[in-house]
Design a protein around this nucleic acid. Sequence first.
DNA 1: AATAACTTTCAATTATTTTTGAAAGTTTAA
DNA 2: TTAAACTTTCAAAAATAATTGAAAGTTATT
Lengths: 167, 167
Amino acid sequence: MEFKEAKNKFVQTWGALGSQWGINKTMAQIHALLMVSNEAVSMEDIMEELQISRGNASMNLRALMDWGIVYKEYKAGERKEFFTAEKDLDELAVKISRERSKREIKPALKILKEVSTIEAKDSAEEKHFVDQTTKLYDFVLKADNMLDKMTEFNDNWLGKLVMKIMK
Amino acid sequence: MEFKEAKNKFVQTWGALGSQWGINKTMAQIHALLMVSNEAVSMEDIMEELQISRGNASMNLRALMDWGIVYKEYKAGERKEFFTAEKDLDELAVKISRERSKREIKPALKILKEVSTIEAKDSAEEKHFVDQTTKLYDFVLKADNMLDKMTEFNDNWLGKLVMKIMK
DNA sequence: AATAACTTTCAATTATTTTTGAAAGTTTAA
DNA sequence: TTAAACTTTCAAAAATAATTGAAAGTTATT
């Protein structure tokens, strides 16, 4: 396999993986492209490589910057903007976790708390509901905190994390 | 908040969370509904509660069973089928992890391996590509193995619990 | 202050995914 | 074996999400 083919395959695969996890395909592809580029890339070049429109490129670059995993760069003497991706994978994982936690998990937790604290009356049905949603709340909270804890560690985070969880 | 409202809110929230993570909304909603039901539910009742068509219910129940997180149940003297969800949350997490690993991570790893092992020639660009995709391969592999390890740990824990219950 | 070189926005279009519903399929009972 | 009670399938329709492209916006240069 030659370089160009490999690069394209990687970008396509990363895009597909992204969309399976609720991240828009183009966003994941732009990120993939920047990850494997050894220097900052212009919007023009991104449009060219991925065959996408200016608007699409602009919006998804904005989203990637909002996620904190892509940065703008300016080159001396150049009017246009260039982009680079966060290339440290631990850092990348941390930022994605944080963002998804903030945007999706935290709001869901809030609702879970609400619904799990209704007055259970005496029917078995209602008791089961309260019991199950309470367990779910605890579980999701624990899982979410685990992700937070990950950010505290650097190397051998798995081992340290297991130690911490198991006390 | 009264029970019916809470239940509905929970089902809607779980559905929204699912779709943000690449799981179809109805599938997540059916799962939510079954999770908080203290007894097996018929397809008819699922259709009624979620206001969905028979085809939709049938297909998503099939998918949930393929994921191994919803089971069919038969009631004596009843022709129709009833459904229950896996309610143990650790077990649920394990099954979802396994399934997503098998369906999405493993195939992506295969491609990552392929593209990271091309002949790097001597350009800095190609060297960076190989370096970055190799790191990514290692990272994803490590994360994926971690899920396996947790699964194993969980199995043991469950096994021990089962032994304990059975004396 | 006019123009050139860019980027952003967003209504309209296009692509993708989900859902429907009725026909076909299956199983049980009489 | 026939019919009734169910479930599954899948082409078409509907809903949702992503993308385009041109106008509006911004910033730097002359």
